[in-house]
Computed example of a mutant assay.
Amino acid sequence: MRDALPMRLVTWNINSLRLRLPSLEKLAAHLLPDIICLQETKVPDPLFPADAVRAMGYEHLHYKGMKSYNGVAILSRHPVTPLEQLPDWHGKEDCRHVGALVHLPSGPLELHDFYVPAGGDIPDIETNPKFAHKLAFVEEVTEWFTTRKRERSVLVGDFNIAPLEHDVWSHKQLLNVVSHTPPETERLTKWLDVGFVDAMRHFIPADEKLYTWWSYRNQDWKKSNRGRRLDHVWVTPDLVADLSGMTVVREARDWEKPSDHVPVVVDFSFS
């Protein structure tokens, strides 16, 4: 019988990689993930701090970034082969998706890292182009994944949608607030149903509160606890048996110069 092959994956909207490089170093040293997926890196590719990241033990990097906004990155201890010819979602060229084959000892894993548009403040496609863009983005991504072979694949990222009732602090009060409106949650569910399993809710039942984001506007985020689950990890059904653990790193919300998102850890034990 083969020994289990563990693998730890972290996804985190870091909200500026260069600003929070010390926090990334802390995360890498304390949690020892094999792979870290970042969103909102906010750094153009020529200025990506590759040397500093490699010094943390992540020799294999794949990233796409721009100045001040968006940006996604895959940091890996294992070799990666970037996926070529990925769509330019909605023709925006705004650095919201990278994909790669990660060459693990257990075999290759297809990994996608997404930063879905936030959608602005008004949940109306007529008056708010940002909201219209968000819905169109999710629809386009969903359609694309229906054509892909969905085996041994993982999707992670800040999807900017809290789909379930207990993914938000108040379902009733947030039904008309961008990130939890029916047009968004219905579309995200359709994307998930293309052929993925919600790895976080595999461990935490849907009737329990689960958050990954707390607004900067809350002076005492812990006391008010008005959170939302905007960050997600999805796996194809063939990987469900390999899931071995999940942690939301809430304490990161109290780190120096914190992001408003906290890291999500998912552990695998490949047979």
Rank of each mutant, 00 (worst) to 15 (best):
H103G: 00
L104Y: 04
L75M: 15
N70W: 01
Q85C: 15
P105N: 05
P87Q: 14
A100E: 06
S106V: 10
G99I: 03
C95P: 00
S76I: 06
R96V: 01
R77Q: 15
W89K: 03
N70K: 03
P79K: 11
W89H: 04
P105I: 07
R96M: 04
D88F: 04
G91N: 12
H97T: 02
D88N: 15
I74D: 03
P79A: 13
R96S: 01
R77Y: 03
L86S: 14
L101Y: 14
H97D: 02
T81H: 08
H78G: 04
K92G: 00
P87M: 12
G71M: 03
V98Y: 05
S106W: 08
A100Q: 09
P82H: 05
E84A: 15
V80Y: 06
V80E: 09
A100K: 06
W89S: 02
L104D: 04
Q85M: 14
Y69A: 00
H103A: 11
H90G: 05
E93P: 00
C95A: 14
P79N: 14
G91F: 02
G71I: 02
H97V: 01
H90S: 12
V98S: 07
R96Y: 00
L101S: 10
P82L: 09
H90F: 05
P105V: 10
V72R: 02
L75G: 12
